[in-house]
């Protein structure tokens, strides 16, 4: 870093058009390279290695003996139904949690952005679940959802909402919802805070202008708040999608992918393939396809948002 500064300083004397450009290049390289090198080192290389592994027949039993098997791992993957099922479970989970998070987060952010008593204190305490590590959150929710002596079943029975205890984590229809609830609890605060932050950045005169045009509260929300939050929404929802796509500990601790396969997401499947079915090559192939899905997803996501931009901009 120091060196780059000196380079830069010595260059100012003979400032030609070309050297100015070179200096820009050098400066850019100097500021970007630390991050790139770090990423390349701990994540880039493992990802490449994992992609490489996906073309080999390699088992956990004999990790050092590799034999090239072309696309056999990929073919096997598509041949059995588990992969498709996991993709479906993953998308269902991601869609549910992000949609819930976004809608509820928006509602709570709108309330907290209004004039309510103890606003600052409330804004702070709702953040606490966010600082709780996922594994602790998982344990806490297992305790709450415990079928025989958990508090959730007790309260629901007391209120006569259910007539017998529910097996939250071992019921084929409830398990994914129960995990989603735990995830929502942990992730909602971040969503709320980011959206709230975005709302506070919207200049007040925009609302005034809208009010002069005769917009009611609902119209203000649709035509001022939402378009102005576009960037925030894009950032936080994409982060939420990616984070939940690869969610592992919550599922692993709470359900291990069960009952049957009801909560077997892609991350659980790739773990199971590599460490229980002992097929590292196939596990790597899951990772490779996963990466393709995610890149495609992000690309579509960005495209969708730029389309939305035109519409939102046209509103005022």
């Amino acid at each position: 870093m120091e060196k780059a500064v000196r380079l830069d300083a010595s260059g100012t004397g003979r400032a030609s058009r070309l050297s100015e450009k070179t200096k820009d290049g050098l400066f850019l390289a100097a500021i970007i390279s630390p991050a790139l090198l770090l990423l390349l080192f701990t994540i880039g290389i493992p990802i490449v290695k994992s992609l490489y592994l996906s073309f080999y027949d390699v088992t956990l039993l004999r990790m050092k003996s590799l034999s090239w098997n072309g696309f056999a791992n990929y073919r096997n993957l598509f041949a059995d139904g588990d992969f498709g099922h996991s993709v479906a479970v993953t998308f269902r989970y991601v869609f549910t949690i992000v949609a819930l998070q976004f809608v509820l987060g928006m509602a709570l952010a709108l309330i907290l952005n209004g004039k309510i008593p103890m606003r600052r204190a409330i804004r702070t305490v709702v953040l606490i679940p966010w600082v709780i590590p996922t594994i602790i959150g998982a344990l806490l929710w297992m305790w709450l959802f415990q079928p025989q002596y958990g508090i959730v079943n007790y309260v629901l029975q007391y209120l006569h909402l259910i007539d017998k205890p529910l097996n939250w984590l071992s019921d084929i229809h409830l398990a994914l919802w129960a995990v989603t609830a735990a995830a929502l609890w942990k992730q909602l605060p971040f969503m709320v805070t980011m959206l709230l932050a975005g709302m506070q950045g919207i200049p007040g005169d925009m609302y005034e202008a809208a009010m002069i045009d005769g917009a009611n509260k609902r119209q203000q929300f649709w035509y001022v708040t939402l378009p102005m939050l576009k960037n925030t929404i894009q950032t936080v929802t994409l982060i939420a999608c990616i984070e939940n796509f690869k969610m592992f500990p919550l599922f692993w601790i709470m359900t291990s992918g069960g009952p049957v396969d009801a909560t077997t997401t892609l991350s659980i499947l790739s773990y199971k393939t590599a460490f229980i079915d002992l097929d590292l090559g196939k596990g790597a192939a899951i990772g490779a396809i996963w990466l393709v899905i995610m890149l495609l997803f992000s690309w579509i996501y960005n495209r969708l948002f730029s389309i939305g931009e035109g519409k939102g901009g046209g509103a005022h």
């Binding site: 790739s270 773990y271 590599a274 890149l295």
Partner: peptide, 16 residues
């Protein structure tokens, strides 16, 4: 850069 965050850590453990 973003794509490095898309895979779960479990699937990279051995290489890492």
């Amino acid at each position: 850069i973003l794509s490095t965050q898309m895979l779960p850590v479990v699937s990279l453990l051995i290489a890492l």
